[in-house]
Amino acid sequence: MKTTHIKSIKIEKIFTELHNNFGGNLEIISNEYKLDLNGNFGRGTIKGIALKNGISYIEFDVTLTDEVVISMMATKNLPIYFTYCSEGSVSHSFGGNSGSVALEKYQTGILTCKRAEENILTFKKEDRTKISLIVVNTTKSETVEGSSLNQRLRNTFFEDSQLDSSVFIGSYNLKIGEKIKELNAIRHTGIVRSLMIEGIVHLILALEIQQRKDDLAAEANATGCLSSKEMEKVKEISEFITNYPENDYTLKMLSRKSGLSNSKLQEGFKFLHDRTVRDFIINERIKKSEQLIRTTDLNISEVVYSIGFTSRSYFSKIFKQKYDCSPKFYKDNQNSLAATA
């Protein structure tokens, strides 16, 4: 077992400690850090970026050759760690031989820690683990006392000035995983990159807080929750529909393909996309139609039938609902409309 102690929430000190312990190649560009492991302790990448207002984002995507413990010591800044597991699993415990809890694939975790106590994350040996941490310094002050995001988070998670340690493990959430993919897909540079990263990180933070709120509200009713494997099936079916929206789908056929009951499938789509299965299929067809109108020479009737619709009038109606204009008008003015679609 290998243990790494991190005694700061400053991104540069965190990566200095990680580099000292794991070796590898550390690359620093502007305020972004990237540590590529060289195989001595495992394979993969650890990335991080410092954002405004005492917020940092760190992402581990690693397969380690030994069990690794990362001990994050609480500081006077009273950090909150908003976590999300995209692959594998990690266990969390506090210092002092306390019991551990597991953070599994697609789950969120919110970790608070009083001064002089440790948040301990344990990575399994030889398992690919992808985990994201949004670290928030809750004592960051601004001009108007009590108005900053940091102060509001402190008031929410350290209630009534009782600065106790706590860990909240949320239910499964695929939307956060999709936002993390968007984050990793950013190819812009300079200020555009910084603004896009900051926007997505703040959105992930909002989704994690909302997940906690929803879970606490539903705590008394544990029925109807999907397992991680079931959510994975919903995700696979969603991607299949997105790739082939023109197919003639039925709920029965999709249920059989996924191995889920009709009700489980509908529940998963409502949770992941906030739509029924039917509405999701229609939305994906309309998105595909917009792409075809914009990028091909197909006429409107050809587009309608190529995406699985049989009624041009129905297609025109729902296209206008989404893009606020008729398909013909969109095609005739695509250069000016495509940017706002």
Rank of each mutant, 00 (worst) to 15 (best):
M253R: 12
N40P: 03
D248C: 09
N243M: 11
G199A: 07
K125N: 11
N247S: 12
N53M: 12
K179N: 06
H19S: 13
N25S: 14
V192C: 01
A339P: 14
G109Y: 00
I237Y: 03
K233V: 02
D36E: 15
M231K: 05
V304I: 13
M196G: 02
I9L: 04
E17R: 04
I300K: 09
K47N: 06
G42S: 05
I11A: 05
T223W: 09
N184Q: 13
I11D: 03
I6T: 01
S132D: 07
L226D: 06
F280L: 02
Y323C: 12
N20W: 01
S194C: 02
S161G: 10
I293R: 01
K7F: 11
I286G: 04
R193W: 01
H273M: 06
H188E: 15
M196Y: 00
F319A: 04
T63F: 00
G42P: 11
N31Y: 13
R193T: 03
V277W: 04
R212M: 13
G146R: 00
I204C: 00
C325P: 13
I197D: 01
I180A: 01
K175A: 08
R312W: 06
M196C: 04
H5K: 10
E27G: 07
K7R: 07
D164P: 06
E59F: 15
D36Q: 13
Q162A: 14
T250A: 08
F60R: 00
H273K: 12
G259M: 01
L35K: 05
I169Q: 08
N184V: 03
K233A: 14
D160K: 15
A220T: 08
Y305V: 12
A50I: 06
I209D: 04
I110S: 13
E267F: 07
T138V: 04
F309V: 06
S8W: 05
I293W: 05
E198L: 00
Y84C: 10
D66H: 06
I131W: 00
N262S: 05
F158T: 07
K10C: 06
N221W: 08
M73T: 09
P79C: 03
V167T: 09
Y57G: 05
I180F: 08
E17P: 02
N38E: 11
Q107T: 11
E284N: 10
R294A: 12
H273L: 04
H5Q: 08
I14K: 00
D127M: 09
T310W: 12
F269V: 01
K328N: 14
I46P: 11
S313G: 07
Q162D: 10
E32V: 08
